[in-house]
Design a protein around this nucleic acid. Structure first.
Lengths: 236, 236
DNA sequence: CGATACTGCAAACAGCGTTCGCAGAAAGGC
DNA sequence: GCCTTTCTGCGAACGCTGTTTGCAGTATCG
């Protein structure tokens, strides 16, 4: 009688026990959505576009997914399946976490729309749980309490997303969208003419000494943040 | 004749030299948008709703703003005006940056929608430039190259957003939305029953030893990350 | 062999961001 | 002073969105 609360998609069975077999699978729908998002961004993932890609109508999708956000949940879980948790890390926890972070970076660079999707704070999918398990396993030898470990993993995730966002912004601004960055620097130099931002002016003046490879910057920042969090040199 | 590229809103004059004076100001529009977002989230900031709040029609807004994203740009700049850059920090760079981070945290907690708006990677507004100048001033005595300083400030911003997001999720989940977290733990414990996630199970088992005040957690994590970035104990 | 519980899907709905077109008002040029 | 230019306000409309409804058909259970 009562509808009950709308349960998370990961708690719902993929198909019921009665009726005919569903024509599509969650994986197939997720793949279609990912393809659209990879090509034209998250905004291109409309219910109609996904339905078209599958060769059906929009209403049919709602037999698989309660809402568009849930479809995106499926897509997130799909790309989170690209982690290879069997890859050897090196034995030391920092090397292991760094290897995991590099994989995460690769996923972001392959699927830039993921950066726009992570703000939805939906429930953690199965592949994210596996990721969490792997990260905790890497930290099993480190002597800090579990709360701190989860904390560090959370910060690591946020940090990787941040760095990936910077890389993507830089890359697309340099090639396909020179407009945006030109606007940025135009306004910035305008604002600096007033002379009320000496430190900023100085920092931007000495800006491009030479380009550091993105990978080494990534490794350096991630390593420093992680050691700072888990083995601080200055405990106080 | 040529339309030219659509210039950033911060490069456009607030009003033209000819014609009648605009009925509203950017500040007034931004304030109206912020009020709506504070009350009902970013999704409540529709062109129609903002227009209604101002007592006009949707089309009129486009005399002030080229697109909805630009309206949100205005709102972001508006709340970035809540920083008090005259407040004393303590003299040490870490204390200064921590004070700045605490102010930033306050803004996020007062305007949670800001977390959903920062992904739009629009141009930096005037108040963000002031923030940047202040943060660089705090680091003026630190002997690392400017690139590293900008890097650290960027990471700091991302970190504050991350911690604020966690605080907000915890807060709303505990009070107004017990549903979400219940779903989360429901699926998580279901997934753990399979026994393939021993580390995660262990970490969650020892979970709530006692609640640390949010402020002290914030200070602790921010301080550790910053010292890790700018004065790493283990340079290699 | 009903009864039940599912599936696929056309059609429709309310709401969204945005554009068009035009009436009217203020400032520049002569 | 006046005409031209350039701005402003805004009703109406367009195309698109996520989602709901309703119904015909089908596989499984008891």
């Amino acid at each position: 009688m009562t509808e009950g609360p709308v349960r998370s998609i990961w708690l719902r069975p993929e198909r019921g026990a009665r009726g005919p077999a569903p024509e599509y699978s969650r994986g197939r729908i997720a793949t279609a959505g990912v393809a659209l998002a990879d090509a034209d961004g998250l905004a291109a993932v409309t219910m109609r576009a996904v339905a078209d890609a599958l060769g059906t109508g929009p209403a049919s999708l709602y037999r698989y997914v309660a809402t568009r956000d849930e479809l995106i949940e499926l897509m997130i879980n799909e790309v989170n399946g690209e982690f290879d948790h069997t890859a050897p890390g090196g034995g030391h926890w920092l090397q292991d976490l760094l290897a995991l972070a590099r994989q995460s970076r690769g996923i972001y660079l392959r699927h830039p729309w993921l950066l726009d999707a992570t703000g939805l704070d939906g429930p953690i999918g199965p592949n994210a749980v596996d990721y969490l398990e792997h990260a905790l396993a890497a930290l099993s030898g480190v002597d800090v309490d579990p709360r701190t470990k989860l904390e560090a993993i959370g910060v690591l995730n946020g940090l990787v997303a941040l760095l990936a966002r910077a890389e993507i912004a830089q890359g697309t601004a340099g090639r396909t969208l020179p407009q945006w960055q030109r606007e940025q620097t135009a306004y910035l130099s305008e604002a600096l003419k007033a002379g009320r931002h000496p430190h900023l002016a100085a920092a931007l003046a000495t800006r491009p000494p030479e380009a550091e490879p993105a990978e080494s910057l990534f490794d350096r920042v991630v390593a420093r943040v992680l050691t700072g969090l888990l083995h601080p040199g200055t405990p106080r």
